[in-house]
Simulated scan of single mutants.
Amino acid sequence: MSTAKIVLATRNEAKLTELRRILAASDLAIELVGLPDGEEVAETGTTFAENALIKARAAVEATGLPAVADDSGLAVDELAGMPGIRSARWSGRRDGTREQRDEANNALLLAQLDDVPAERRGAAFVCAVALVTPEGVERVAHGKLRGALLNAPRGQNGFGYDPLFLADGQTGTNAELTAAEKDAISHRGRAFRELAVVIGQVLVP
């Protein structure tokens, strides 16, 4: 069986590790490669799907290989679906480490929900993941994980808003789950498992 080489269009090391792990579990004959150094692509879309396609198309143009890209974020009910596509940049902080930016985003979100009672702290992690090929094939898969936001962070695993997010049916936040437990329920896990079927149909003989 031949192996298909696919570019994962992200330079976020935590996300890259997670995406590699999820796709590796699909047992497809694929070789996953990282995105080469270069300028960040402007995410000018108005939806997760549009931004995922923008990043995947740019990766195809840069490498000539099929590319997979995701765009994901947190949609908070009380904030009318925000931070949404602005989740990674919610606090406006662009300097410092990823951990420092995550901490700033979480702190701002907690401040915005400071007086919101538990019954109105519903939220969902949302993901759109796109496959784009040099031949022009484009496919998008979606995943969602419902839950609620806590009043303070818990857990040391995961990244982003994971320490604040308690998924429906769970007793620990996403940052308290093991990698395998998180992959089984996460928005990205669901989206990538759906896309793995497409990859098998489109790329793997």
Rank of each mutant, 00 (worst) to 15 (best):
residue 137 V to A: 13
residue 80 A to Q: 13
residue 22 I to P: 00
residue 197 V to I: 11
residue 8 L to A: 10
residue 196 A to M: 03
residue 194 E to P: 00
residue 47 T to D: 07
residue 199 I to L: 11
residue 9 A to N: 07
residue 73 G to E: 05
residue 17 T to Q: 14
residue 59 A to I: 13
residue 180 A to K: 04
residue 39 E to K: 09
residue 85 I to A: 11
residue 121 R to H: 08
residue 191 A to N: 02
residue 182 K to R: 11
residue 27 D to L: 12
residue 5 K to N: 05
residue 44 T to S: 14
residue 108 L to A: 07
residue 118 A to K: 04
residue 24 A to Y: 02
residue 147 G to V: 06
residue 15 K to G: 08
residue 151 N to E: 15
residue 120 R to M: 14
residue 4 A to K: 01
residue 59 A to P: 04
residue 153 P to Y: 15
residue 172 G to L: 15
residue 98 R to S: 13
residue 18 E to C: 12
residue 65 L to T: 07
residue 65 L to C: 13
residue 143 G to L: 07
residue 133 T to K: 10
residue 194 E to S: 12
residue 44 T to A: 13
residue 51 N to L: 08
residue 80 A to W: 09
residue 59 A to Y: 07
residue 194 E to L: 09
residue 181 E to C: 10
residue 47 T to V: 10
residue 72 S to F: 01
residue 25 A to T: 03
residue 199 I to D: 00
residue 82 M to T: 03
residue 165 F to G: 06
residue 117 P to C: 11
residue 87 S to I: 05
residue 79 L to D: 05
residue 165 F to M: 14
residue 136 G to E: 07
residue 89 R to A: 09
residue 160 G to R: 07
residue 205 P to Y: 02
residue 25 A to R: 06
residue 82 M to C: 12
residue 139 R to Y: 04
residue 147 G to D: 06
residue 174 N to W: 02
residue 66 P to S: 15
residue 13 E to C: 03
residue 136 G to A: 10
residue 90 W to A: 11
residue 189 G to Q: 06
residue 116 V to F: 03
residue 82 M to Q: 15
residue 194 E to F: 00
residue 11 R to G: 10
residue 35 L to V: 10
residue 166 L to H: 03
residue 94 R to D: 01
residue 102 D to H: 08
residue 150 L to Y: 02
residue 130 A to S: 11
residue 148 A to E: 11
residue 100 Q to D: 09
residue 63 T to C: 14
residue 128 A to D: 05
